[in-house]
Simulated scan of single mutants.
Amino acid sequence: MTTVEPRPALDALDALESEAIHIFREVAGEFDRPVILFSGGKDSTLLVHLAVKAFAPAPVPFPLLHVDTGHNYPEVIAFRDSLVERLGLRLEVANVEDYLADGRLVERADGTRNPLQTQPLLDAITENRHDAVFGGGRRDEERARAKERIMSLRDAFGRWDPRKQRPELWNLYNGRHAAGEHVRVFPISNWTELDVWRYIQRENIELPDIYFAHEREVFSRDGMWLAEGPWGGPRGSEELVSKTVRYRTVGDGSCTGAVESSATTLDEVIAEVTASRLTERGATRADDRMSEAAMEDRKKEGYF
C-alpha cells in the first residue's frame, strides 16, 4: 500500500503570495492592456515583486504607470528609475506639472497636489487603453479601501460606485466591463501593513531608504512632521528642526508626514509596526484628514 505524504500547510505569507500571484495571472489572461500603478512606495514595489514572480522566467507582460505630482521625494524618483532599469520594465509617466502648465488643472491654495492626480490618471488610462489597473490598496489602510472588491469596476468616467459592488465568492473574480470602462485590481487587498513588512523581509525586497530612520529637517503641522520642499512650508510660526524620522507611506510631499523613529533595520521596523495603534495613512496622510469621507469622495471621482 502506497503512503501519500501530506502536503505541507501554507503559512500566512505563502497563502497571501499565492492569492496575489493567482490574481495577476487571472488578469493577464482576461484583459488586453493591464498596467501597474506605481509610486515607488513599499506597496507598489511589492506589487512589482509579485508580478515578477507570477510570470518568471518571462518578463512582466505589462508596464508601470506613475502619476508624478512634481512633489515627490527625490529618493523615491531615483528608486523608481533604478528599479525600472534593473528589471527591464516599461514606465509610463503622467505629469501633474504638464496639466498645471497648460491650465487643465489649477494649483490648490493649500499647496497639496495629491487630489490633482485624478485627471492625469484617468487620461493616461484612456489614452493608453488600459482595461485593468493594478493598485497597491489594502483593506486595513482606510475605511473606503476596506469597501473595495479585489476587482473593482470603474465606469466610462473612471468613477467608482460603492453601492454597485460585485459579489466575490472564494477566488472567483468578475472582470466583465463594457467598452470605455475599466477595472481596478487590488492583489494585496487582504494584506496588512505588518504582512507587507514581514514579506519584504522574507523576500529581501529593496525599498527607498526614506522608509528607514534618518536625520531630516522637518516642521510640525497638524500633528505631523512635514519636510521642507517645493510644496511650501514652513509657514508662519512653523519652525524647521532636525529629527530622526522615517516614512511609513510615500506620497505627495505636501501631505505625507514622517514619524519619529529610530528603526534602521527591518527587524526594528516590524517591531515598531507591531506596536503601532494607527495605520500608516491614519498616522501620516493629511489628504485623508480633509473630511470624514475624504478617501471615498476621491475614489468616486476616479482616484485610486
Rank of each mutant, 00 (worst) to 15 (best):
L91W: 02
I205Q: 01
L87D: 04
S44W: 01
R108Y: 06
N171L: 12
D102Q: 07
S18P: 05
V218K: 03
W225R: 10
F219S: 09
R139G: 15
A109S: 11
G41Y: 00
A132C: 13
G257I: 00
E30K: 10
A58M: 12
V218L: 07
S276L: 09
E26V: 02
S152R: 06
R184S: 07
V84E: 10
D123H: 06
T244H: 12
A28C: 10
S152P: 02
A146D: 13
V76C: 05
G158T: 06
L207S: 01
L100F: 02
Q117R: 11
E193H: 06
Y73A: 13
E148G: 14
N204G: 14
R154Y: 11
E301N: 10
A20H: 04
A213R: 00
A12M: 07
F79P: 14
Q201R: 10
V106C: 14
R248W: 08
T3F: 06
H214P: 04
V273W: 00
S44V: 04
L13Y: 05
D14V: 03
R289D: 15
E19D: 14
R277A: 14
W231R: 15
E97P: 11
K42Y: 01
P8S: 10
D222A: 10
P6G: 11
G229M: 10
R235A: 12
E148T: 14
V52H: 12
R113Y: 03
W160L: 12
E142H: 10
